[in-house]
Simulated assay, not measured.
Amino acid sequence: MAQLAAISCSWYSWLEQGRQMQVSEQVLAAVADVLRLTAEERDHVFALAGHPPPDPGPCPDSAEDRALRRMIHQLPDAPAYLVDRRWNIVDWNEAAAALFGTPLDEVPVEDRNALRFALLGRHAPLRFVDPVRSAHLHVAQFRADTALLIGDPEFEAQVEDLLRDSALFRALWPLREVHRRSAGSIAYRHDVLGPLRFDFVATTVDHGASLRMHTFLPCPS
């Protein structure tokens, strides 16, 4: 085992004995690979060692992603769309297009992003009732969702674009607030539909899905 994981026999023995020692993520990953641990087992090992679970990376067109794509199109009355790890909107249902008030496939790809919609609203007749509070929540949740992307060139370029384009983002991003909200109520003012209130739910699938589903469930009037 030690040879396969490229570590010393003594060190591996200490690891098996549960001695108090610092274990690097690289060593844990090597041991997990040799033991052929499942994703769940690997995450558990990392948690025991006090490390965040490794980023599985994007898995485009996985079975989980395909299920999420089918799901949003089976919600005729609830606006729903799918975002990737950088909150780029990659699929949506007709109700979401009606909510945004514009065909999303006509929105430039660089602007077809949930955070840009929330902060800039250039392509939608949709406004938050409390835009500053909503911006705080969105930016803090975006930071939580993208923590593993720090250093990624595309992510860093996205942050630079947001810093350039959004005064709210320039004010909020340096605060380093983190928020993992999965559900909550959102109130909007819509130029055509008037006041709107939704229960917002963010849904993801562990180990396999590269996408997250954002769903807006209409609140009873």
Rank of each mutant, 00 (worst) to 15 (best):
L196I: 05
D130H: 13
D65A: 05
D161R: 14
R85T: 01
Q74M: 09
W92M: 00
A32S: 11
D61K: 04
D111L: 03
A124K: 00
I7V: 15
S24W: 14
W87G: 01
R164Y: 12
S134A: 13
F169S: 08
S13W: 14
D130P: 00
T204P: 00
E40A: 14
A63V: 04
L168G: 02
A30Y: 01
D65Y: 02
R85Y: 11
P54K: 09
A49I: 12
V178Y: 15
Q74W: 09
P108Y: 14
P131S: 10
L15P: 01
A124Y: 02
D161H: 10
F198S: 04
A80P: 03
M21N: 03
G194L: 07
R122M: 09
A171D: 12
L104I: 06
L120M: 09
L148Y: 06
A29I: 00
C59V: 12
Q17K: 13
A209P: 00
D33R: 10
F117V: 14
P54C: 07
G184F: 11
E16W: 10
R181V: 11
A118E: 11
F216M: 14
V205I: 10
P108L: 08
G184T: 10
G50V: 10
E25A: 15
A157C: 02
V129A: 11
Q17M: 12
D206L: 12
D105Y: 10
Y188T: 04
A5P: 05
R212I: 00
V132Y: 08
P108R: 06
H138D: 09
S221N: 12
F117A: 13
D165E: 14
V23D: 03
L119H: 03
P103Q: 11
R170Y: 11
I186F: 15
I89G: 01
A114E: 01
D161T: 15
E106F: 04
L137A: 03
L99H: 00
S166C: 03
Q20E: 14
A78K: 07
F198A: 03
V23S: 13
S10V: 08
I72R: 08
A140W: 13
L48T: 05
D105K: 10
E41P: 00
A95C: 04
G18A: 02
